[in-house]
Every structure is written in structure tokens, then in C-alpha cells.
Design a protein around this nucleic acid. Structure first.
Lengths: 191, 191
DNA sequence: TGCGCACACCTAAGATCTTTAGGCAAATAC
DNA sequence: GTATTTGCCTAAAGATCTTAGGTGTGCGCA
């Protein structure tokens, strides 16, 4: 019989495609096996288990997202950088909804440490260099940016904004504008 | 044999408790049946299917959250209202992680329409009455608030902030302060 | 108080997914 | 060209979901 040429990388890739097509929740070891026209058990020489597959897809998505972020940030600063980076998140989520969901998959500590998570945080800090924030405030701002990007994209994907005007495109750009304004006038700690 | 006294409400409640104990992902029709010491098939006279159960838990969580929000908002305005409402979200997520996850379960349109989603939006609009925003900007601001609350709480729950100082408590209050400042100085549309 | 009916819960069974154990054949190594 | 590695397979057990059809309980009503 002809071998299918399974590798962890190809399985992960296929899982990511599957996620975009049918949703990350529906990604199963069986479904991936079907896609390679191979018996389910065969995947277990490459993957530890189902959770392992999902973790790998999550790590792939985080890498891709970080790569796009890095590209977007190159040669940009200030509001320009902020906008470009924000759009990377939203565009990625639109193009790859399943992968984006995967990127928010709860990773166990070891996986998290090996993930591109740190790169994401560093890029946000790089953006903030264009604004005038003291060190502790920078951390707060990083968390705010992460929250807004992640929150907006999630809610939009969940359809939370889909039943009200105006369109989400406009809200997005107005919100990014607002964040820029906020970062330029970050308030001092309350008394 | 003694009847267990199954009702949709009790099943939903049990599912919600289970979600908080072992995570929303682990909530299964079988697990709920086990909790009532009843055969799995028995639940299918009360529930349409597994998805139905999850939807009901999600609706329950959204109601509870809206109730708490309404209580918090009573007699408050401005920043006071904003802070109280924000804390409702975060506290609920801490107290009931499984339910909070459930609240973000993707609802089909009919379920969404019957959900407390509209109450949430209305409460946010009520908060914004304490700030001076024109109508379209109010919508953008509602979306921003939703994004930040949801995003922050999700990322915190996912452990995204757990490996860096300062503590998440402080970031949270500084971020709410920042939102207040932003709402008081909402920028005009970019040219 | 007793009768009948509705329905609450059950048994049975098929389908899908996960995971492990052990086997055969194809690729690779010498 | 043989030997070894290893990729993929068969087999099997356990879990979940879901449907179909059966039985006894408890309530409404006479």
C-alpha cells in the first residue's frame, strides 16, 4: 500500500485548514485522518492525542499571527503602527476564523512558554514606544490593547455586533482612533 | 422506582454548576445525567440535544450577568456606574468561570434574540448617558466597552496575564480609569 | 376511592470519536 | 540483497450522542 506521508507538520496544517472550514470545535483526529484517507489509529504515531493536535494548531496560528504582525510593524511607528497591527488581528480572524479560535485555545504552561505569545507582547510594547508611557503604564496599556483586539474580534465573530448599525468596519476604525487618542493622553493613576 | 424530578430548569442549573466545576467544555449530557443518577436517554425528553443544553446554560449565564449588572447600575452614574458594571463582569467570571465561558457560547439567531444580550447593550448605553457622546459614537463606545470587558476577562482567564507583573487587579482598575478618561474625551472622527 | 391516561424514566441499539496494543509491509541502511 | 526501522493497518474497548420503543408512577377525574 502507498504511504500517505504523514508528518506532524502536515497533520497540523490539515487541522488548521479543517478548522477554517468547519470550525475549530469540529476539528477531530478522525476528521483529519479522513482528510488523508488514512485510518484514525495511524495518526497516533505522530500525535500524542486529540489535545496535542489542537495545541499544535493553536501554536501554528499564534506563529502566523505573530509573523503577520512583525511584517505589519516593519517601518511603521505611532498610530500608523497601531492601526496596521490592529488590522492584522482582525484580518487574520476574518480570513482564518478557525485558526483564530485556535489561537485562543487554552494552552498548558509548557506549550504557552513555547508559543509566540511572548512575541505578541513584545510587538505591542514596540508599538507603545511611539507613545509616552512610563514602564508600569506600558504593561497596563499592553493588556488593554490585547483586550480590545481580542475582545472586538471575538465579539464580532460571535455575531454580537451583527444586528445593529453602523457597520463593524466603521466601529473598528473609530475604536482604533480612540485607542490612539487614549495612548497619547494616558491618565495618571487615580488618587 | 423513584422519579428524579427532572425539569429543564434543574438540568440547566446542574449543567451550569458542572461548568463551573469542571469547565464548560466538559459539560455533557452524560455528565448531567450522572449527576442526577439517571440514564442518559432520560434527559432527551427534556432537552433537544447536547447543543440545546449548552445553549440553555449560556442563556442562564447571560441572564444572571444582566441581573447583576442591573443591580450594580441602580443609583449609580458616570464613572461610578462604569466601574461597578465592569466589576460585575470580572467578578462573575471569577466566581463562575464555566458559566462565563458559557455566556460566550455561539448562539444561533433565535436563541440570541431570546437572550439577555439586548439588556447588556442597553445597560452599556445607560452608562454612556453619563458621558457626552453623539448617537453613532455611542454605538462605537458600546462596542469598545464590550470588547474591553470581554477581552480582558477572557485573556485573564486564559492565563495570558499570569506570567507578568504587575498584578491583574491593578491593570484592571487602571484600564477602567483609562476608559473613563477616554469616554470623557472621545475623539472626533479622523479627517 | 378507584380508573385511566399522560409522561417520566428505562432498555436497547447504532453511530461517531478516542485511545491503546500488536502486526505487516514498505522504506532505508548497510 | 538482507536487515532494521517505522509507517500505516486491524482489532478492540470505552465514552458520548441520539433515537425508538417499553413500563410503571402518579395525577386528574369520576
Amino acid at each position: 500500500m502507498v504511504r500517505a506521508g504523514l508528518t506532524v507538520a502536515r497533520l497540523t496544517q490539515a487541522g488548521a485548514e479543517l478548522a477554517d472550514e468547519v470550525g475549530f470545535e469540529q476539528v477531530t483526529v478522525s476528521a483529519v485522518a479522513r482528510r488523508f484517507d488514512v485510518k484514525v489509529a495511524s495518526l497516533y504515531s505522530h500525535l500524542k492525542n486529540s489535545h496535542d493536535l489542537k495545541t499544535r494548531i493553536a501554536l501554528l496560528a499564534l506563529e502566523e499571527l505573530a509573523d503577520r504582525g512583525a511584517t505589519a510593524l516593519a517601518g511603521r511607528a505611532g498610530k500608523d503602527a497601531l492601526t496596521a497591527f490592529a488590522d492584522v488581528y482582525r484580518d487574520y480572524a476574518h480570513e482564518h476564523p478557525g485558526r483564530y479560535t485556535a489561537a485562543r485555545f487554552r494552552l498548558d504552561p509548557e506549550a504557552a512558554a513555547a508559543s509566540a505569545g511572548a512575541r505578541h507582547a513584545q510587538m505591542m510594547r514596540a508599538i507603545l514606544r511611539g507613545y509616552d508611557l512610563t514602564e508600569p503604564d506600558q504593561t497596563h496599556a499592553v493588556r488593554l490593547l490585547g483586550s480590545v483586539f481580542h475582545g472586538y474580534v471575538s465579539l464580532e465573530a460571535a455575531g454580537a455586533f451583527s444586528h445593529s448599525a453602523p457597520d463593524t468596519e466603521e466601529s473598528w476604525s473609530r475604536i482604533v482612533d480612540a485607542l490612539d487618542a487614549l495612548l497619547r493622553n494616558w491618565p495618571a493613576p487615580a488618587l
